[in-house]
Computed example of a mutant assay.
Amino acid sequence: MAHKTIFITGGASGIGRAVAVKFGSQGWFVGLADVNEAGMRETAAMIPAGMSSTHKLDVRDRAAWDVALADCAKVSGGRIDVVFNNAGIPLGGNLADNNTAEIERCLDINLKGVLFGAQAAHPWLKASAPGSCLLSTASAAGIYGSPGASVYSATKFGVRALTECLDGEWAADQIKVADLMPAFIDTPLIDMTPNQQTNEHIRGRVQNAGLEITPVADVAEAAWNAVHGTALHTRVGKTAHRLAFAARWMPGRLRKMGKASGKPLGGR
Results as ranks from 00 to 15, higher is better:
Gly92Pro: 04
Leu180Glu: 00
Gly142Met: 00
Asn98Arg: 07
Gly117His: 01
Ala70Phe: 10
Arg248Pro: 04
Val227Gln: 02
Ala247Lys: 13
Val19Ala: 14
Ile80Phe: 10
Ala101Ser: 13
Arg160Pro: 05
Asn36Arg: 08
Ala222Cys: 05
Gly210Glu: 06
Gly258Met: 12
Leu95His: 05
Ala101Ile: 01
Cys165Glu: 07
Thr54Ser: 11
Ile202Thr: 02
Val30Gln: 13
Ala44Met: 01
Pro188Arg: 05
Ala12Lys: 01
Ser139Asn: 07
Ile143Met: 11
Cys106Leu: 04
Cys165Leu: 08
Glu37Ile: 08
Ala171Glu: 09
Lys238Asp: 06
Gly93Tyr: 06
Tyr152Leu: 02
Phe157Gly: 11
Thr54Arg: 15
Ala161Arg: 11
Thr214Ala: 04
Ala38Phe: 06
Lys74Trp: 12
Phe29Val: 00
Asp108Phe: 11
Gly204Tyr: 10
Ile185Gln: 01
Asp71Trp: 06
Ala260Asp: 10
Ala138Gly: 13
Pro264Gly: 06
Gly117Cys: 02
Glu104Cys: 08
Phe23Met: 02
Thr198Phe: 13
His122Cys: 06
Glu200Met: 08
Thr9His: 08
Ala217Ser: 15
Gly142Ser: 06
Ile47Asp: 00
Pro215His: 07
Asp191Thr: 04
Ile143Leu: 14
Lys256Cys: 08
Leu32His: 13
Pro215Ala: 05
Gly113Gln: 01
Ala73Tyr: 12
Asn36Gln: 09
Val227Arg: 02
Ala247Val: 00
Ser25Thr: 07
Arg242Asn: 14
Ile15Trp: 07
Val75Phe: 11
Gly258Val: 01
Asp34Gln: 02
Pro130Val: 06
Leu180Ile: 09
Ser13Cys: 12
Lys259Glu: 11
Leu115His: 13
Thr100Tyr: 15
Leu189Gly: 09
Gly39Pro: 05
Lys263His: 04
Ser132Val: 03
Pro182Ala: 04
Ala226Ser: 15
Ile8Tyr: 07
Arg79Gly: 09
Ala171His: 09
Ile6Asp: 00
Val151Ser: 12
Asp81Ile: 02
Ala118Asn: 14
Gly27Tyr: 09
Leu211Ile: 04
Gly204Leu: 00
Trp249Ala: 07
Leu134Tyr: 11
Met46Ile: 07
Gly262Ala: 05
Ala2Gly: 08
Ala63Leu: 12
Ala172Thr: 13
Leu254Gln: 05
Ile6His: 14
Leu134His: 12
Val219Arg: 04
Asp173Asn: 08
Thr234Ile: 04
Leu162Ser: 06
Phe184Ala: 08
Cys165Ile: 14
Ala127Glu: 01
Asp34Phe: 03
Ser53Asp: 01
Val83Cys: 15
Thr9Gln: 03
Ala101Tyr: 11
Ala220Val: 00
His55Glu: 03
Asp179Glu: 03
Arg17Met: 03
Ile190Met: 03
Ala45Gly: 08
Lys156Val: 07
Phe157Trp: 15
Asp97Lys: 10
Pro215Ile: 02
Ser53Glu: 02
His122Phe: 15
Leu125Val: 00
Ala223Arg: 01
Gly16Ile: 01
Ser76Arg: 09
Thr163Asp: 12
Ala12Leu: 02
Val30Met: 14
Ile185Asn: 01
Tyr152Cys: 03
Arg253Gln: 10
Ala127Lys: 04
Thr234Cys: 09
Pro188Thr: 01
Ile8His: 14
Thr137Asn: 14
Trp224Pro: 04
Val227Asp: 00
Gly24Leu: 00
Arg160Tyr: 03
Gly39Tyr: 14
Ala63Trp: 09
Val75Asp: 13
Ala33Val: 02
Leu111Glu: 02
Ala96Gln: 08
